[in-house]
């Protein structure tokens, strides 16, 4: 018979396993912004990487579903060129994004800005998952208690018949 602490431990391990990657994956975005501040001259590879990073978060205006990075359309190509040019001129990624935002509106951002009402789209899934996890943990614990109570009652009555 397993003891309750062990069960909680199992769930905790699981919670950690879910939570750690969750935290880890919000990281790259902010890390990108930090490095962006120091606008030193970029090597070609760095420049291309940064162009790619920005372009993949902008929506291609002519094709609707794809990012500027992924779209083979002429307009997207020009936009990549413009991003490259602006970065080379020393603009920060944040300034480049602002440039497009000013002209196309929020529609151009494939990732809604985490501010104001938009927090809903970022936080609701996390809240739902966390709330669900707590709910499942509590229910499962209650069910185990019920199961143990029932098993105790059965052993008093006679041999287990279920299954």
């Amino acid at each position: 018979m397993t003891s309750p602490p062990r069960e909680i431990l199992t769930l905790l391990t699981f919670a950690v396993l879910v939570a750690v990657p969750c935290a880890a994956f919000t990281e790259p975005a902010s890390r990108g912004q930090e490095t962006a501040v120091q606008a030193a001259p970029l090597s070609d590879a760095e420049l291309e990487a940064r162009v790619r990073e920005i372009a993949s978060e902008l929506r291609c205006p002519t094709c609707r579903a794809l990012s500027v990075q992924d779209s083979p359309s002429g307009m997207a190509e020009e936009m990549r060129g413009l991003i490259r040019e602006q970065l080379r001129a020393g603009k920060t990624p944040e300034e480049v994004r602002a440039y497009f935002l000013e002209r196309y509106g929020e529609w151009i951002l494939l990732k809604p800005k985490a501010e104001g009402f938009n927090w809903a789209v970022w936080l609701l899934p996390v809240v739902a998952l966390a709330g669900g996890l707590v709910f499942v943990m509590l229910t499962a614990r209650r069910w185990v208690q019920q199961g143990q109570a029932r098993a105790a009652a059965l052993t008093q009555k006679g041999p287990e018949e279920e299954i």
Partner: peptide, 18 residues
Amino acid sequence: GVKVSVGAPYFNQMSIPI
């Protein structure tokens, strides 16, 4: 009252941990 987009960067970031 504003048109916004939700695309691959959002979905990737949210779905990878799950």
